[in-house]
Simulated scan of single mutants.
Amino acid sequence: MGERMTEYDGKVRVGGAVQTHELAKLMITKVAVGPMDNNAYLLRNRQTDEQVLIDAANEADTLLTVIGSGGITRVITTHQHGDHWQALAEIVARTGAITVAGRDDADGIPVPTDEPVGDGDRIQLGELSLEVIQLVGHTPGSIALLYDDPTGAPHLFTGDSLFPGGVGNTRGNKKNFESLIHDVETKLFDRLPDETWVYPGHGADTTLGAERASLPEWRARGW
Protein backbone atom coordinates (compact mmCIF):
# COMPACT_ATOMS: atom_id res chain seq x y z
CA MET A 1 0.00 0.00 0.00
CA GLY A 2 1.44 3.40 -0.97
CA GLU A 3 2.45 5.99 1.59
CA ARG A 4 -0.34 8.41 2.37
CA MET A 5 0.45 12.05 1.54
CA THR A 6 0.50 14.23 4.65
CA GLU A 7 -2.28 16.80 4.68
CA TYR A 8 -0.87 20.30 4.47
CA ASP A 9 -0.72 22.11 7.81
CA GLY A 10 2.25 24.41 7.18
CA LYS A 11 4.41 22.90 9.91
CA VAL A 12 7.85 22.04 8.55
CA ARG A 13 11.24 21.73 10.24
CA VAL A 14 14.84 22.08 9.12
CA GLY A 15 16.03 18.74 7.78
CA GLY A 16 12.47 17.40 7.65
CA ALA A 17 10.05 16.77 4.83
CA VAL A 18 8.59 19.51 2.70
CA GLN A 19 4.84 20.09 2.57
CA THR A 20 2.81 20.97 -0.50
CA HIS A 21 -0.44 22.92 -0.43
CA GLU A 22 -2.38 21.86 -3.51
CA LEU A 23 -4.71 24.53 -4.87
CA ALA A 24 -6.82 24.30 -8.02
CA LYS A 25 -4.33 26.22 -10.18
CA LEU A 26 -1.24 26.56 -7.98
CA MET A 27 1.01 24.22 -6.01
CA ILE A 28 2.74 25.77 -2.99
CA THR A 29 5.66 23.79 -1.55
CA LYS A 30 7.04 24.90 1.81
CA VAL A 31 10.52 23.96 3.04
CA ALA A 32 12.44 25.03 6.16
CA VAL A 33 16.17 25.74 5.91
CA GLY A 34 18.81 26.54 8.53
CA PRO A 35 20.49 27.89 10.45
CA MET A 36 17.75 30.42 11.35
CA ASP A 37 14.75 28.19 10.57
CA ASN A 38 13.65 30.17 7.52
CA ASN A 39 10.79 29.22 5.26
CA ALA A 40 11.17 29.15 1.49
CA TYR A 41 8.22 28.65 -0.84
CA LEU A 42 8.16 27.18 -4.33
CA LEU A 43 5.08 28.12 -6.36
CA ARG A 44 4.20 26.10 -9.47
CA ASN A 45 1.51 26.90 -12.02
CA ARG A 46 -0.31 23.58 -12.45
CA GLN A 47 -1.20 24.29 -16.08
CA THR A 48 2.15 25.54 -17.42
CA ASP A 49 4.58 24.11 -14.80
CA GLU A 50 6.24 27.54 -14.53
CA GLN A 51 7.79 28.00 -11.08
CA VAL A 52 8.93 30.87 -8.86
CA LEU A 53 10.78 30.72 -5.54
CA ILE A 54 10.07 33.02 -2.62
CA ASP A 55 13.15 33.65 -0.43
CA ALA A 56 16.31 31.72 -1.34
CA ALA A 57 17.13 31.84 2.34
CA ASN A 58 19.85 29.20 2.72
CA GLU A 59 20.86 25.62 1.80
CA ALA A 60 21.00 26.05 -1.96
CA ASP A 61 21.21 22.29 -2.54
CA THR A 62 18.02 21.73 -0.55
CA LEU A 63 16.23 24.43 -2.51
CA LEU A 64 17.48 23.07 -5.84
CA THR A 65 16.17 19.63 -4.91
CA VAL A 66 12.75 21.14 -4.22
CA ILE A 67 12.88 23.13 -7.47
CA GLY A 68 13.73 20.01 -9.46
CA SER A 69 14.50 19.77 -13.15
CA GLY A 70 11.83 22.29 -14.15
CA GLY A 71 13.85 25.26 -12.92
CA ILE A 72 12.42 28.62 -11.87
CA THR A 73 11.73 31.77 -13.85
CA ARG A 74 12.05 34.14 -10.87
CA VAL A 75 13.28 34.24 -7.31
CA ILE A 76 11.57 36.81 -5.11
CA THR A 77 13.23 38.16 -1.95
CA THR A 78 10.72 39.47 0.58
CA HIS A 79 13.20 41.82 2.30
CA GLN A 80 16.85 42.72 2.68
CA HIS A 81 17.76 40.88 5.91
CA GLY A 82 20.62 38.47 5.32
CA ASP A 83 18.89 35.31 6.51
CA HIS A 84 16.52 35.59 3.54
CA TRP A 85 19.14 35.65 0.75
CA GLN A 86 22.06 33.43 1.79
CA ALA A 87 21.43 31.05 -1.12
CA LEU A 88 20.31 33.68 -3.61
CA ALA A 89 23.59 34.02 -5.55
CA GLU A 90 23.94 30.27 -6.02
CA ILE A 91 20.28 29.77 -6.95
CA VAL A 92 20.55 32.50 -9.60
CA ALA A 93 23.83 31.06 -10.92
CA ARG A 94 22.37 27.55 -11.16
CA THR A 95 18.93 28.44 -12.57
CA GLY A 96 19.36 31.74 -14.43
CA ALA A 97 16.31 33.05 -12.61
CA ILE A 98 15.30 36.72 -12.71
CA THR A 99 15.66 38.39 -9.30
CA VAL A 100 12.78 40.36 -7.79
CA ALA A 101 12.71 42.45 -4.58
CA GLY A 102 11.10 45.55 -3.11
CA ARG A 103 12.69 48.60 -4.70
CA ASP A 104 13.32 50.22 -1.30
CA ASP A 105 15.26 47.15 -0.11
CA ALA A 106 17.14 46.27 -3.29
CA ASP A 107 20.30 48.17 -2.30
CA GLY A 108 20.57 46.03 0.84
CA ILE A 109 20.64 42.74 -1.10
CA PRO A 110 24.11 41.88 -2.46
CA VAL A 111 22.75 40.10 -5.53
CA PRO A 112 21.51 42.67 -8.09
CA THR A 113 17.73 42.97 -8.36
CA ASP A 114 16.58 42.61 -11.98
CA GLU A 115 12.99 43.65 -11.27
CA PRO A 116 12.48 46.11 -8.40
CA VAL A 117 8.82 46.17 -7.38
CA GLY A 118 6.45 48.20 -5.20
CA ASP A 119 2.84 48.47 -4.10
CA GLY A 120 0.37 47.15 -6.66
CA ASP A 121 2.91 45.65 -9.03
CA ARG A 122 2.21 42.16 -10.32
CA ILE A 123 4.59 39.24 -10.78
CA GLN A 124 3.38 36.85 -13.44
CA LEU A 125 3.39 33.09 -13.10
CA GLY A 126 1.97 32.04 -16.44
CA GLU A 127 -1.61 33.28 -16.51
CA LEU A 128 -1.57 33.57 -12.70
CA SER A 129 -0.10 36.53 -10.85
CA LEU A 130 1.14 37.62 -7.45
CA GLU A 131 0.25 41.13 -6.28
CA VAL A 132 3.00 43.01 -4.46
CA ILE A 133 1.99 44.69 -1.18
CA GLN A 134 4.65 46.88 0.43
CA LEU A 135 4.68 46.76 4.24
CA VAL A 136 7.03 49.39 5.68
CA GLY A 137 8.53 48.87 9.12
CA HIS A 138 10.43 45.62 9.50
CA THR A 139 12.54 47.04 6.67
CA PRO A 140 11.80 49.99 4.36
CA GLY A 141 11.08 47.80 1.34
CA SER A 142 9.55 44.64 2.80
CA ILE A 143 6.95 43.12 0.50
CA ALA A 144 4.12 40.66 0.90
CA LEU A 145 2.84 38.67 -2.06
CA LEU A 146 -0.85 37.99 -2.59
CA TYR A 147 -2.22 35.15 -4.69
CA ASP A 148 -5.93 35.93 -4.92
CA ASP A 149 -7.14 32.45 -5.80
CA PRO A 150 -10.15 32.72 -8.14
CA THR A 151 -11.41 29.36 -6.88
CA GLY A 152 -11.03 29.85 -3.12
CA ALA A 153 -9.44 31.79 -0.27
CA PRO A 154 -6.60 34.27 -0.86
CA HIS A 155 -3.03 33.15 -0.09
CA LEU A 156 -0.57 35.66 1.37
CA PHE A 157 3.22 35.36 1.71
CA THR A 158 4.25 37.87 4.37
CA GLY A 159 8.02 37.50 4.79
CA ASP A 160 8.88 38.82 8.26
CA SER A 161 6.08 41.42 8.40
CA LEU A 162 3.33 39.22 9.86
CA PHE A 163 3.50 36.04 11.94
CA PRO A 164 1.18 34.05 14.16
CA GLY A 165 0.98 36.26 17.24
CA GLY A 166 2.19 39.57 15.88
CA VAL A 167 3.87 41.76 13.32
CA GLY A 168 7.57 41.59 12.48
CA ASN A 169 10.34 42.80 14.76
CA THR A 170 10.88 46.58 14.68
CA ARG A 171 13.58 46.45 17.40
CA GLY A 172 11.89 48.88 19.72
CA ASN A 173 11.65 51.63 17.11
CA LYS A 174 8.25 53.23 17.73
CA LYS A 175 8.06 54.92 14.32
CA ASN A 176 8.81 51.68 12.50
CA PHE A 177 6.28 49.77 14.61
CA GLU A 178 3.56 52.35 13.96
CA SER A 179 4.30 52.17 10.23
CA LEU A 180 4.21 48.38 10.15
CA ILE A 181 1.07 47.90 12.24
CA HIS A 182 -0.68 50.58 10.12
CA ASP A 183 0.28 48.89 6.86
CA VAL A 184 -0.64 45.43 8.13
CA GLU A 185 -4.02 46.67 9.36
CA THR A 186 -4.98 48.76 6.34
CA LYS A 187 -3.42 46.76 3.51
CA LEU A 188 -4.06 43.25 4.82
CA PHE A 189 -6.70 42.97 7.57
CA ASP A 190 -8.99 45.76 6.31
CA ARG A 191 -8.90 44.41 2.77
CA LEU A 192 -8.72 40.61 2.95
CA PRO A 193 -11.12 38.06 4.46
CA ASP A 194 -10.59 35.93 7.55
CA GLU A 195 -9.95 32.79 5.50
CA THR A 196 -6.83 34.34 3.93
CA TRP A 197 -4.02 31.82 4.44
CA VAL A 198 -0.79 33.41 5.71
CA TYR A 199 2.65 31.97 4.91
CA PRO A 200 5.34 33.71 7.04
CA GLY A 201 9.11 33.85 6.68
CA HIS A 202 9.65 31.69 9.77
CA GLY A 203 7.53 29.16 11.63
CA ALA A 204 4.00 27.92 11.20
CA ASP A 205 1.29 29.29 8.94
CA THR A 206 -1.80 31.09 10.18
CA THR A 207 -4.89 32.85 8.82
CA LEU A 208 -5.96 36.47 9.09
CA GLY A 209 -9.04 35.30 10.97
CA ALA A 210 -6.93 33.60 13.63
CA GLU A 211 -4.99 36.83 14.23
CA ARG A 212 -7.59 39.58 13.70
CA ALA A 213 -8.91 39.75 17.27
CA SER A 214 -5.37 40.30 18.58
CA LEU A 215 -4.71 43.52 16.63
CA PRO A 216 -5.69 45.84 19.54
CA GLU A 217 -3.40 43.86 21.86
CA TRP A 218 -0.48 44.18 19.43
CA ARG A 219 -1.03 47.93 19.18
CA ALA A 220 -1.24 48.31 22.95
CA ARG A 221 1.97 46.38 23.65
CA GLY A 222 3.88 48.18 20.87
CA TRP A 223 5.40 45.14 19.19
Rank of each mutant, 00 (worst) to 15 (best):
T29M: 02
P110A: 01
D55A: 15
T158Q: 03
A60K: 12
I98Q: 13
P116A: 04
G118T: 15
L156C: 04
K11T: 04
K30V: 10
L128D: 15
A97E: 06
L162M: 06
D107Y: 02
I54A: 09
T196F: 12
T95G: 01
Y147G: 00
L215S: 05
L130H: 06
D190K: 08
R219I: 15
A60Y: 08
I76W: 05
V31C: 12
N58H: 15
G71T: 15
S179N: 15
K11D: 06
P164E: 02
E7W: 06
P110I: 04
I109Y: 02
D194E: 11
T206H: 02
G102A: 03
R46K: 15
V12M: 03
D83I: 09
E59L: 08
M36I: 11
D205T: 08
Q47T: 06
E131L: 09
F177C: 08
D37N: 15
F189L: 14
D83F: 12
V75H: 06
V12S: 02
D49L: 10
G152H: 04
G68Q: 13
N45L: 06
H138K: 13
A153F: 06
G108A: 03
D61L: 12
Y8M: 05
S142K: 07
V198C: 08
A89D: 09
Y8A: 04
L130S: 05
K187E: 14
F189A: 13
A144K: 08
D49T: 11
K174C: 00
R103H: 10
I91D: 01
L43N: 08
L43A: 09
E3I: 07
W85C: 01
V14D: 03
M5D: 02
D160H: 04
L42M: 06
A204Q: 07
L208T: 02
A220E: 15
P154R: 01
G96E: 08
T29P: 03
H202D: 11
A24K: 15
P140C: 03
L26A: 07
G34Y: 11
T6S: 09
I28K: 10
P110H: 04
F157R: 05
A220L: 12
G71N: 13
D194Q: 08
Y147T: 00
V167S: 00
L63S: 13
R46D: 05
G70K: 12
V66R: 11
E59K: 12
F163L: 00
A24S: 13
H84A: 04
N169H: 03
A210Q: 10
D205N: 09
L135H: 09
N169A: 00
K11C: 02
V18H: 06
L128S: 13
A220Y: 05
D105R: 10
V12K: 01
D190V: 04
E127Q: 10
A57V: 12
V75C: 12
